[in-house]
Structure formats: C-alpha cells, structure tokens
C-alpha cells in the first residue's frame, strides 16, 4: 500500500476522534503500519481540534509535517482553512460546508473568512477542494462518517478500498445502537462522492 497521510480538522465535539479511529482501522486492516494522533482535554470544549492518521510501510512519527498531508478532512470551514498549509501540493481537501463562528467573530472583532478566500487559499496550494453539503438534525452526529463516505469515493481511495472495508471498520468501532445512523451517513457521503467523480473527470 502507498503511504498516505490524513488530517482531520474541526471543532471539539464534532466526532473527530471517532472518524480518525475508523480511518486508522481501515489502514490497519489493509496491512499498513498505522499511527494516529489525537487531542483530548481542554481543547475539546469548543476549541479547534485536529487529528492525523498516517498509513505506511513503517510509520515513525504520529505527526506529519506541514506540506505533507495527502488528504485533509475538514469538519468546519474555518478549521479546514486554518490547516490548509498541511496539505501537499495537489492534495485533496474534503470540507463540510459548515460555519461555526468563534468568539472573536461573535464579538464582532474579527471576520469569518468568506468562501472565496477559502477557495483561493486551497487553490494557491494546488489542492483539489471538494465541498460537502452539511447534514442537519440527528445526521449531524455522524458528520465525520459522512465525510469519510465522501473521501472513500474519491481518488486515491476509491479503487483500493471498497465500501465493505469502511463499513467493517465502522462496525468494529461503533456500538450497535449508533451503527445504523453511521452506516447511512457513510452511504450518503459515498453517494455524494460518486456523483462528483464523473464531473471532475469531464472537467
């Protein structure tokens, strides 16, 4: 398997740890050496949270360097663009189109970056940016798994990992009571990803 570095970025409470666990489990089951870094504690109280997952032949550091992440999974727009510099040239960014104003924006002291700025920032880094339509209601609880569904339908994972590999990891890590919600979220994301692939190939 080729070495792949993932980064997940969002806000405490969005399910970043679980989504990273699933990603790590998929890599492990495929025979890779895997390391994953997480953030716990104070930052989880509504602060910005990131996690990295690394698959490879032999992975030393659980952290990759800026400019060396292959796939950035953004749970929230500001947190995605804040970590855009981790992406390598030509990397993939999949971003949930969800905006959560941080305190400085709520207080009117700072502006939330507008979507044009965000797109320019990713473009400047040669990244392939894909927006995901944000889930609402109960489906928000599984936003991370929906993002994984979308990522799973795109290159470079589309060919190597069939949906079963993902659903198997999901079943291993998610307690039965929440499995159906998450399986549906995965399929929703996957379907959205499948839709955008031909469009990109045409373009």
């Amino acid at each position: 398997m080729r070495d792949l570095n993932f980064m997940l970025a969002g806000v405490g409470g969005q399910g970043i740890i679980l989504a990273g666990d699933i990603l790590a489990e998929v890599g492990l089951r495929a025979g890779a050496d895997v390391k994953k870094s997480e953030v716990h504690g104070m930052a989880q109280r509504g602060g910005g949270v990131t996690s990295q997952v690394r698959w490879g032949q032999r992975v030393y550091s659980p952290l990759a360097e800026p400019g060396r992440i292959d796939i950035l999974i953004g749970f929230e727009v500001l947190e995605a663009v804040r970590n855009a510099h981790y992406l390598r040239q030509g990397g993939l960014a999949v971003v949930n189109r969800y905006r959560l104003a941080p305190p400085a924006v709520t207080a009117g002291e700072a502006a939330y970056p507008d979507e044009g700025d965000v797109e320019r920032e990713f473009a400047a880094r040669g990244a392939d940016l894909r927006w995901m339509c944000p889930p609402s209601g109960r489906e928000r609880l599984a936003v991370g798994v929906q993002l994984l569904g979308l990522v799973s339908a795109l290159d470079p994972l589309r060919e190597a990992f069939p949906p079963e590999a993902w659903l198997d990891a999901l079943d291993r890590l998610i307690p039965p009571a929440h499995r159906e919600l998450n399986r549906q979220a995965f399929q929703r994301g996957r379907a959205a990803g499948a839709d955008v692939v031909p469009a990109r190939e045409e373009g």
Binding site: G46, G47, V81, P102, A111, Y112
Partner: peptide, 15 residues
Amino acid sequence: EPVPLPSLPARPPVL
C-alpha cells in the same frame, strides 16, 4: 515550510 494563512480568528475553548 508552508505556513498557515495569517489573521484567521482563533478558536479557543469556551464554556
């Protein structure tokens, strides 16, 4: 080394 976009509003933890 790639650096982050400057002047993005911080997101500290909150109650």
